[in-house]
Design a protein around this nucleic acid. Sequence first.
DNA 1: CGCTAGCTTGATCTCACTCAATAGCAGTGG
DNA 2: CCACTGCTATTGAGTGAGATCAAGCTAGCG
Lengths: 262, 262
Amino acid sequence: MRHRHNGHIEPTMHTQNVLLNRTAELSPVERDVLERSISEIKVIPAGHILVRQGEEVKVSTLLVEGIMTRHVDTADGHRHLVTVHIPGDFVDLHGYALKRLDHDVGALTEVRVALFPHAAIERIQDSNVPLTKRLWFCTLLDAALHRQWIFRLASLTALQRVAHFICESNARSLAIGVSDSRRFAFPLTQADIGEVCSLSNVHVNRVLRQLREARICEVRSGHVEIFDLPRLVSTGLFKPDYLYLNRLTARRSAGEDWSSDD
Amino acid sequence: MRHRHNGHIEPTMHTQNVLLNRTAELSPVERDVLERSISEIKVIPAGHILVRQGEEVKVSTLLVEGIMTRHVDTADGHRHLVTVHIPGDFVDLHGYALKRLDHDVGALTEVRVALFPHAAIERIQDSNVPLTKRLWFCTLLDAALHRQWIFRLASLTALQRVAHFICESNARSLAIGVSDSRRFAFPLTQADIGEVCSLSNVHVNRVLRQLREARICEVRSGHVEIFDLPRLVSTGLFKPDYLYLNRLTARRSAGEDWSSDD
DNA sequence: CGCTAGCTTGATCTCACTCAATAGCAGTGG
DNA sequence: CCACTGCTATTGAGTGAGATCAAGCTAGCG
């Protein structure tokens, strides 16, 4: 299907440092409880759809390596992404309470995932209130992301949308230590970006050229190169607050120009 | 500010039949636990902003009567709605785990709300797993709504968006028994609809005219009149699945043309 | 070495926006 | 009672951001 530039992933047990993104906030005990709830580690090829809209789900998926997406299909065969997931994200934890999903879940690149049977999550909920609240929080982050995507589609121009999305991707990559705000992996095609920002691939191309020619950033062959973060942030009207990142870690370097009002 | 056509609301204790929308699914005991978690019932005038973006919140708000909205403010003074809430919605339950909100919460009409201190919700979480799961579910519904709003903005034309939004409003009103799929209260101005569907008020006007002239539906003076639900549903490409409504109650009449694949 | 997926650029078109003007209606005050 | 104000709805004319259509280019891969 898509041929991405990544070597083959081995299904090793090596999830410690990506559990729930903000590992620092988990106690060793909690991390252990989570680890023991994993029923299986799996490698899934790029392009594969893990869950179809409407299907009943009995396990939830933690993304360990690679990029996954969630998207809705339209009548005319088009689709639109509603989220892009990076390692550490609990991709479909909401399936635990919802039972069936209102969208598809797919692997954009080859991915490694850890599966959590809902029975195991149920056990956590029965026995561990703080960890449950932590999981709840994760699903709420998701909703916060969604809201910002609504804002992006509703209120920004094509250029702003793309800049905003790149800022978001950078900030999240930064939070899990795979960006330094100068360069990070970004294995999305221009068509993929179009499906995020609701733009034609042609127009995405033009916008990326604009960003490149303005020496703001460059998106090419699977990664983003940021030349001028402050201008990228201001172009995208990006305020990282909605990511609820730990202020001590990622916030400053993600959107440092935001002298917010608190 | 806005002058809406509604009599004055009295702050009486009368929340039983709107608790969490799907009262039928709550046991009497659960309903009682919830009732006892309410610290205060308040009436709030139309146009009032209850919570500002970034503010720390210590109570969550259940909407008992009226319409509330959640919206993000843009740099240039515009705003965009991310949700419209009807009675029975737990407007900012997510504030319990998030602590601060990434958006404003406001009263569109005069509203009556029941306030739940987070300490009380904490107590529920400590002691009542099924009810906690139920609350969790409510916040996930929210995210499902958001996803559909993303889809609407990304993939539908102006006419389709408005039709879709009207279908959604009808389906949700139906679920709480305030619509019969022919007529329901809808106290949004054309500008408000524009802030939901990301359209100018002028264009909303034209679209509503189209719907009226096609004898599909009429939106006027605070209510919607539906002439032809099947065509409204097909015009808006509306599939009610994402609302996770009880199939026995509201689904059939909300979007009856959907012979879904299960 | 040809195939296919992805990227690039130009030309044209269109949906929805902006600007502008008018009308209706509720409440307010002289 | 009517004039006045402010908000909402309506309709027309001109404009523009981004879509679509079309063609050519590049590079990895079998």
